[in-house]
Amino acid sequence: MQRVNMIMAESPGLITICLLGYLLSAECTVFLDHENANKILNRPKRYNSGKLEEFVQGNLERECMEEKCSFEEAREVFENTERTTEFWKQYVDGDQCESNPCLNGGSCKDDINSYECWCPFGFEGKNCELDVTCNIKNGRCEQFCKNSADNKVVCSCTEGYRLAENQKSCEPAVPFPCGRVSVSQTSKLTRAETVFPDVDYVNSTEAETILDNITQSTQSFNDFTRVVGGEDAKPGQFPWQVVLNGKVDAFCGGSIVNEKWIVTAAHCVETGVKITVVAGEHNIEETEHTEQKRNVIRIIPHHNYNAAINKYNHDIALLELDEPLVLNSYVTPICIADKEYTNIFLKFGSGYVSGWGRVFHKGRSALVLQYLRVPLVDRATCLRSTKFTIYNNMFCAGFHEGGRDSCQGDSGGPHVTEVEGTSFLTGIISWGEECAMKGKYGIYTKVSRYVNWIKEKTKLT
């Protein structure tokens, strides 16, 4: 034993070699072989497995989906700052455009905790909710729209109204504003409101030439003092309507412009014939205590009207009353817009006519005020429907199939267009061939041609 100890002390290297040989010859039971080890760690190889990531292109799944990435790591994937920024906006807080917040056709661009709407022409605001041009839906104005110097929408209202708090709607500024039905039992019968379409306001006024200088022999019209197929109006439903009495009662109609003036057809009036105007009328054979009678003290036909040349060209006249009318729910003026808007309103496509005229061709006159909704007829169809001249200051309205029309005794009465609950004068009943005849239409004086003249002559002093 002493000898062994001496050998170990003198030859430590020998001992180490012996131990190493023993270990190498022993069977290893701690580690699995290569094949079995792979069965336990069965993990798919990654895209760049075996390579240094710093030297390969980034992978979106590896960089940002398996674990949260930084902007720089995302930049490695896209290799483009702009594309990385677009991805980053949604990656950080989701897609803010998912709810489609942009209105009126706006395009949404996502941002971090926010979004941006790219608005089409005519709109602005956070969600493109603000109209900035009158060309689109009248700028959301209830009545009139004008573009300011910086191309912003400025709404306005006709006389007797003021802008509401929203700067879009119009509200009454006087007790009985024009064009409004205020009798409670008839307010439910107000005709369907007309909503502004998209309009090209630059070209809204037709490029028409008034044929002022045409000389033409007097034409022989049949029954051209021209509501057939209409309905009984309720008291106060058309408070701007008046009836004219002269040699015979209810020979023509008219509309209240203001307390002192009536507008009617020029062919209705004769110099030297006494005319009485009755406002607030409903049943011409009954006294309903809503009527107001006034005498006409002055007749002003349009300066281009000449019955000797043509009885229905420039067929418009103004009547001055001896005493002002007292405005109330049964006696209310009709609204008159400017030339541009009167023309736009007419193009809405349908209007209402009213009167006490004959209820059928050569038949009896109506006792109760009649009204009828009539569609506008395109000019080409209008011209083809008659052998008589249709001037540019006239328009056609009615039904091709016949059966409904204005008729004798309705002449001078109103053709009105309702705009968001307020009625505007767009025409004056003038003439036609018979009444409600198939293929024939009622012919009306186009008020847009005469609004400046009306307003100039009827100013209240």
Results as ranks from 00 to 15, higher is better:
Ile136His: 10
Gln167Arg: 08
Thr417Gly: 01
Trp453Gln: 00
Cys117Phe: 00
Ser220Thr: 08
Pro239Cys: 01
Glu401Leu: 12
Ser423Cys: 07
Glu208Asn: 10
Thr85Glu: 09
Glu434His: 13
Val416Trp: 15
Arg140Met: 09
Met437Phe: 14
His289Lys: 13
Cys134Trp: 03
Trp356Lys: 09
Ser70Ile: 05
Val359His: 12
Val92Ala: 15
Ile443Gln: 03
Asn310Leu: 03
Phe71Val: 15
Val263Ser: 02
Cys28Phe: 02
Glu320Phe: 02
Glu323Pro: 04
Glu61Phe: 05
Asp110Gln: 12
Asp150Leu: 10
Gln90His: 13
Val243Ser: 12
Tyr47Ala: 15
Cys155Glu: 01
Ser354Pro: 05
Asp223Gln: 13
Asn258Thr: 05
Ser107Phe: 05
Cys97Phe: 00
Asn166Ala: 03
Ser182Met: 13
Val228Leu: 08
Asp405Ser: 15
Asn222Ile: 10
Ser148Ile: 07
Glu420His: 07
Val331Trp: 00
Asn38Trp: 06
Asp198Lys: 10
Thr422Ala: 04
Phe78Lys: 15
Tyr47Glu: 06
Leu383Glu: 13
Ile454His: 01
Lys387Asp: 12
Ala436Val: 05
Val263Leu: 11
Val416Tyr: 12
Asp200Leu: 11
Leu367Met: 05
Cys268Asn: 01
Glu35Arg: 09
Glu54Cys: 04
Glu323Met: 11
Glu281Ala: 12
Gly105Gln: 05
Ser187His: 06
Lys347Ile: 03
Leu23Ala: 05
Ala192Val: 14
Ile297Lys: 13
Glu76Ile: 15
Val56Asn: 15
Ala366Tyr: 09
Lys89Glu: 05
Asn36Ile: 08
Ser329Val: 05
Val199Gln: 11
Val326Trp: 06
Asn59Tyr: 08
Lys68Ala: 15
Lys274Ala: 08
Ser204Glu: 13
Val199Ile: 11
Ile429Phe: 12
Leu425His: 01
Ser184Glu: 11
Arg294Ala: 03
Thr85Leu: 08
Leu321His: 00
Asp95Phe: 06
Thr215Asp: 06
Ala436Lys: 12
Lys188Met: 12
Val248Ile: 13
Glu401Gly: 10
Leu346Arg: 04
Val199Gly: 12
Asn138Lys: 05
Glu142Ser: 12
Gly21Leu: 15
Tyr330Cys: 03
Lys168Met: 13
Leu369Lys: 15
Asp338Gly: 08
Leu41Gly: 15
Glu231Lys: 09
Asn452Cys: 05
Tyr161Asp: 01
Glu86Arg: 13
Phe399Met: 07
Ser70Thr: 13
Leu24Met: 11
Cys102Ile: 00
Val331Tyr: 00
Ile316Arg: 00
Gly409Asn: 13
Glu72Tyr: 06
Arg83Ser: 15
